[in-house]
Computed example of a mutant assay.
Amino acid sequence: MRIIVRIVLVLAALLCAGAPALATPAVIDETTGRKIDELLAVRAESPGLSRPDLIERLSARLLGTPYGANMLVGSATTAEELVVDLRRVDCFTFLDYIDAASRATDRGRFLDELVANRYIDSRVEFTQRKHFFTDWAARERVAATDITATLSPAALTTTKHLNAKADGSTYLPGVPVLDRAVTHIPSEAVDAAVLAGLRTGDYLGAYTPAAGLDVTHVGIIVTTPTGPVFRNASSLAQTYRVVDTPLADYLRTVPGIVVLRPL
């Protein structure tokens, strides 16, 4: 029988800053609780490991985790919930959980870090959710640096009107349109020099030229003796789980890449 544990998360950082207290209940099922504890144990067993290598080791523990679409709950008309569910993950929640685990030492800290990753200024609200990959490098709390432009002279920068569809409507009603310069490297320009600049633990997004979006999929770079792989929560019917995809194969399916390096 599944045991449901209700945890009330109090954001101490907000209290220290003098902001209003925010208590957010998070329901953690038994499987998710066990996986969080496994991730925390990996971190505890690796005190001298660099953060990139820690991200690789933690993410390896989620290989094979089933894919789940649209895992988060909230909209302009539905109250935002703090979802913590490692029974299945989508590509964004996969990154959320791994990044949080790489910074945490216990469950309480894990939840604090998860909220800081997922929400601007740790405010658990739909309008404050980091809906776009590049938010991780642009919105508080900044979790990564966008290094795309440094990897290749072929990098291109496009001003995107994030959340604005070509027909003038929005992907996410209630979320303002945000103008942002998004830099990507076209897939055909990802040469040996670019690959040499990638590191294990880098976060990679699949750039899209579509109006209103920066990327369509995200994952983690892992360097191996046979070349880099793209560790990702795949929605492809033949996989539908967290897998390692040879980066060279993945590049043939996307227009380009955006690379963020965790801080």
Rank of each mutant, 00 (worst) to 15 (best):
R231Y: 07
R199N: 14
L195N: 02
F230D: 06
G219S: 06
P176S: 05
L247Q: 09
V259Y: 05
G201P: 12
G197P: 11
A248C: 00
V243F: 01
T200K: 15
V254D: 00
V222K: 15
D179N: 11
Y203D: 12
A206G: 07
P246V: 00
P173Y: 13
I257L: 08
G256W: 06
S235D: 14
V215W: 10
V190H: 04
A211R: 03
G219Q: 06
T224H: 07
V229T: 11
R252D: 04
S234H: 01
P225Q: 07
E188M: 06
D202K: 12
A237N: 04
G219V: 07
Y171E: 05
P255R: 05
A206I: 02
I221S: 12
E188W: 01
R231D: 05
G174K: 10
D179F: 08
V254K: 04
D191A: 01
P228T: 07
D214P: 12
S187N: 03
V259A: 11
L236M: 05
A181W: 02
L251W: 03
V215L: 09
I220T: 14
L172V: 10
P173Q: 13
V194H: 11
T245W: 01
S187A: 14
F230S: 06
A192N: 05
P228A: 10
P228D: 05
A189Q: 13
T239G: 00
P225F: 03
V242Q: 09
T216D: 12
L247E: 02
Y250G: 00
V175C: 07
N232K: 03
G174V: 07
R261M: 06
V175D: 03
L236D: 12
R241F: 04
P255C: 03
T224S: 12
L198T: 10
S235R: 13
R199C: 13
D214C: 09
A210W: 01
R261K: 12
V175A: 08
V182L: 10
L178C: 10
V229C: 07
T183A: 15
H217I: 05
P262Y: 02
R261Y: 07
D249F: 00
P173D: 12
L236Y: 10
V215E: 05
T224P: 06
F230A: 09
A210N: 06
P246A: 02
I221Y: 12
H184S: 14
G174C: 09
D191K: 00
A192C: 01
P176T: 08
V190N: 03
D244Y: 07
P246R: 00
V177D: 08
P262A: 04
R261C: 06
V222N: 13
T223R: 15
Y203H: 15
L178I: 15
A192D: 14
S235L: 04
Y171K: 09
D214A: 07
H217T: 08
T183K: 12
P262K: 02
P246K: 00
P228G: 10
A233T: 08
P255V: 00
P246N: 02
V242E: 02
R241C: 15
P228E: 04
T245Q: 15
T245Y: 01
G205S: 11
I185A: 06
D249S: 03
V222Y: 09
L195V: 15
V259F: 09
